[in-house]
């Protein structure tokens, strides 16, 4: 047992485990922010009165929800960076980081859109009719009446999307983000295969510790914010 614990101490001393988790937290933060904005716009498009916008929103969701994340992230690296030579920064690490953020965001925006749409479905149709009846056109009605209620109904599914995003941020390795957790884990196993179990537990428990509060917060938020009817 002592040996086992000493193994953990050694791992933490030699490898920057916390630093790697910090990279994933940053990836998650920026991708969550971007995907929330993009997902909200997509949800607006999907419920809009303009057929071509609805069609475009549906097409986006169908394409990105059904494409494996690894492929999207590999695409950002291979096509955007290698082929088109797009650069987002002077340093390669920063460029790869933002490519990963964009890849994660466009993928999860499809799920955010569907989470918000499920929230829209919790808003009775009479709310939209009342908004239209006082003379609000589509955008103000959505912004002032529908979405404020829809977001409250979407807190739980949005929380689930955030949890998935945090864990999916490890796929950023596919976009050459080499400092994040799954890349570090591979390095650690390469150097210390004798501590395989400890390495595995380190990352598994690390993610459990990060994810549990998200679940707790979203559950209590969705209860507290619920619109009383």
């Amino acid at each position: 047992m002592d040996d086992f614990l000493a193994g953990f101490a050694e791992l933490f001393a030699r490898f920057d485990v916390l630093g790697a988790f910090w990279v994933n937290i940053q990836l998650t933060f920026w991708a969550a922010l971007l995907s929330l904005v993009l997902g909200t716009v997509l949800a607006l498009m999907r419920i809009s009165p303009i057929a071509s916008l609805r069609w475009a929103g549906t097409a986006y969701v169908t394409i990105f929800r059904n494409t494996p994340l690894t492929i999207i992230l590999t695409f950002t690296y291979l096509v955007l960076f290698s082929q088109l030579a797009l650069s987002l920064s002077d340093t390669l690490d920063t460029t790869f980081f933002w490519f990963a953020v964009i890849g994660l965001a466009v993928y999860h925006a499809a799920f955010v859109c569907e989470a918000i749409r499920s929230g829209v479905n919790t808003v009775p149709v009479g709310q939209a009719e009342a908004a239209r009846a006082i003379g609000l056109s589509f955008l103000p009605a959505a912004a002032l009446v529908i979405f404020p209620q829809a977001f409250r109904g979407a807190v739980a599914p949005l929380g689930n999307t955030l949890i998935a995003l945090l864990k999916n941020s490890t796929v950023a390795a596919a976009a050459s983000v080499s400092t994040e957790t799954s890349s570090l884990m591979r390095t650690m196993i390469e150097f210390r295969p004798d501590l395989m179990v400890a390495i595995f537990l380190t990352f598994a428990l690390g993610y459990v510790i990060l994810v549990i509060p998200i679940g707790l917060v979203t559950t209590s938020l969705s209860r507290r914010l619920a619109v009383k009817r």
């Binding site: 009775p124 009479g126 709310q127 009342a130 239209r132 009846a133 003379g135 209620q149 409250r152 009817r229």
Partner: peptide
């Protein structure tokens, strides 16, 4: 929208903005 603003509507199920 402009025309609707000039026509008041009262619904069977009230439809007050719940939030």
């Amino acid at each position: 929208a402009q025309l609707r603003a000039e026509v008041g509507m009262v619904f069977q199920s009230f439809n007050l903005f719940a939030h």
